[in-house]
């Protein structure tokens, strides 16, 4: 699903955020991306989302070489990826339902058909009863779950999550992780950046460890 071939990212000014990173992530696989702050976790996710472009190396997602992706193709590429943000990036000018419906509206789905999928996604994260509320009125954990519902509503082949449990207590964090495990069970590749080592070491999944931009462990799936 994801393949990094000697990918490096150097910011202007010489700072090297990633250097010579290579790894693969298969469909249906869940992996954690971990490391200290500034180790390059966010940069790696941004490269997959094409919010940043690599300085060198090749990057394949879903069989597509991202170096050959034009600006015009970019939105269509992004539709196949569900992203969960640490600060959840919900829009407070609309209801929970409309937040989750956003990716479907963007893809141009008929609102009636979209509604069914939005409800299914909200049901999945246990928030169907709050669909008409404003996300601002929800707790942090609930907001994070709305973000997850939005990430999965378009049935993405790949889910990226950046510190999805960053602001949550251990019980809520475990609950969120269980959700992600369910998704990978149905064939979705999931890559979760997290530095919550105590939590992720308990979950028996592969760990990609970044240290100062270098991948020091987990590159071969062991």
């Amino acid at each position: 699903m994801i393949r990094f071939d000697n990918v490096s990212k150097r910011y202007p000014g010489g700072q090297e955020a990633l250097s010579q990173v290579s790894f693969q992530l298969a469909a249906g696989e869940l992996a954690f991306l971990t490391g200290h702050s500034g180790a390059g976790k966010s940069t790696l996710l941004k490269l997959i989302m094409q919010m940043e472009l690599p300085s060198s190396g090749q990057l394949f997602v879903n069989g597509q070489n991202l170096n050959k992706l034009s600006r015009r193709q970019l939105p269509y590429y992004r539709r196949a990826i569900g992203v969960v943000f640490q600060d959840h990036q919900l829009l407070f000018d609309r209801s929970v339902f409309d937040n989750v419906a956003l990716p479907l509206a963007i893809a141009g789905y008929d609102p009636r058909d979209a509604a069914r999928r939005v409800r299914a996604a909200l049901d999945k994260v246990g928030l169907l009863h709050k669909e008409q509320q404003n996300p601002a009125s929800l707790s942090t954990g609930e907001q994070q779950r709305v973000g997850i519902a939005r990430a999965v509503v378009n049935k993405p082949a790949l889910i990226l999550a950046d510190e999805p449990t960053g602001n949550l207590d251990p019980a809520l964090s475990a609950e969120i992780m269980r959700l992600f495990e369910q998704f990978c069970g149905v064939g979705v590749a999931v890559l979760i950046a997290s530095h919550d080592l105590s939590l992720i070491s308990r979950l028996q999944h592969r760990m990609l460890v970044l240290d100062q931009g270098r991948l020091i462990s987990g590159m071969d799936g062991t």
């Binding site: 008929d110 299914a120 996604a121 049901d123 049935k155 082949a157």
Partner: peptide, 12 residues
Amino acid sequence: RGGTSVPVGRKL
């Protein structure tokens, strides 16, 4: 794939 089993809808 995905976490829900609702079929993909029609596009406008």
